[in-house]
């Protein structure tokens, strides 16, 4: 008799087993744990950046180059002569990131990275809309929003490839940097590269999920939780970009 009572109370208690104490499934919980560990990885990369950056003197203020003005071909050499680009101090982001595709010779500081940020935020929105449609079991809507998310991710990767190409043509590498200290370029490539590889794997995962949605895998399963799990990962990638944007382009 008393035995039965014990069993019943243990079923009701939160940590008594037989149910998830977090009210989420195992897979989603593990995704959260993975994201926590990934957050530590990105944090250590960004903190290394902070360390190196803080150990260098600040750049002198830019009073020469105004936004929306013409930029000469030898802009980098000019900046080096003016003392704005030097291996002695950290460069100003507005002078390093001032290019825009198809608009050559115009100083457009931070415009391109802002566009990249908007693309990523928007793809995050389409992802969460896919999750929301999944709750309603609306297969067509999930597929539509997943496709938009894939396009957003691909667009972001394209932008990043273009920016890397800009950087490399200017002469920046892991071993040298015309804009400032070598560590500036090395950290730029490593952190944006690591983030980009996350976006890339996110796009691959999104494509897999998209194909499964089309096949009707989740319809048969009775829920679209897989979309949620990949969605968590995708939002995390967006979250990391918020901080990469803050520390590389604004601070």
């Amino acid at each position: 008799m008393s035995n039965t009572v014990t069993v019943e109370t243990s079923k009701k208690s939160l940590w008594g087993g037989g149910r998830s104490p977090f009210s989420i499934s195992y897979g989603k919980l593990m995704m959260w744990i993975f994201l926590l560990s990934d957050a530590f990885t990105f944090s250590s990369l960004l903190i290394s950046y902070g360390f190196v950056r803080y150990s260098f003197p600040k750049s002198p203020p830019n009073e020469i180059v105004q936004p929306f003005t013409h930029v000469e071909e030898n802009f980098v050499e000019q900046m080096q002569q003016q003392g704005l680009f030097s291996s002695e101090h950290w460069p100003l982001p507005e002078l390093v990131f001032n290019h825009f595709p198809f608009i050559h010779g115009l100083n457009l500081p931070l415009m391109f990275v802002s566009l990249m940020t908007f693309i990523l935020i928007f793809s995050s929105v389409t992802m969460v809309l896919a999750v929301e449609a999944g709750h309603r079991m609306a297969k067509k809507e999930v597929a539509f929003y997943m496709l938009l998310t894939i396009f957003g991710g691909a667009a972001f990767l394209g932008c990043q490839a273009w920016e890397w190409a800009q950087f490399i043509t200017a002469g920046a590498s892991l071993e040298g940097n015309p804009f400032g200290p070598t560590a500036f370029a090395a950290l730029f490539f490593i952190v944006t590269g690591f983030h980009g590889s996350h976006v890339f794997s996110g796009v691959i995962l999104n494509i897999v999920i998209y194909l499964n949605v089309l096949k009707g895998t989740y319809d048969k399963r009775g829920h679209y939780e897989m979309v949620e799990k990949v969605g968590l990962y995708w939002h995390f990638v967006d979250l990391v970009w918020v901080f990469v944007f803050t520390f590389y382009y604004l601070v």
């Binding site: 104490p21 969605g231 979250l239």
Partner: peptide, 20 residues
Amino acid sequence: VKAYFIVGIFMHMKFEKKFL
């Protein structure tokens, strides 16, 4: 602040259990 909105709303954290 941006992180709060991404994690809270997009990642659904605001509606999850406190413990999680």
